[in-house]
């Protein structure tokens, strides 16, 4: 059985909930070793490139 913290089970203000989540996970638990940092930087670079390509594609779709 999964053990869940049910404290959020009642509907709360969404923004308040998101703030609580951000505060809860503010500090990454994983140790930022060199490999981890490099992987995450590479991932960010990859995603930025993909986003730019997507943006270019949709611009061309709109123009044409």
């Amino acid at each position: 059985m999964n053990e869940t913290n049910h404290q959020f089970n009642k509907p709360k203000n969404l923004i308040e909930t998101i703030r609580e989540i951000n505060a809860k996970y503010r500090t990454p638990r994983i140790k930022m070793t060199r490999m981890v940092k490099l992987s995450l930087i590479a991932l960010r670079a990859y995603l930025i490139v993909m986003l730019l390509i997507l943006f270019y594609k949709f611009l061309t779709l709109i123009i044409h």
Binding site: M1, F8, N9
Partner: peptide
């Protein structure tokens, strides 16, 4: 969604226990 928002999110929960 249940994991992230902390809602009850098990198929073992009844609807009233995990409405969202």
């Amino acid at each position: 969604i249940g994991e992230v928002f902390g809602w009850a999110h098990s198929l073992n929960n009844k609807v009233r226990e995990a409405p969202w």
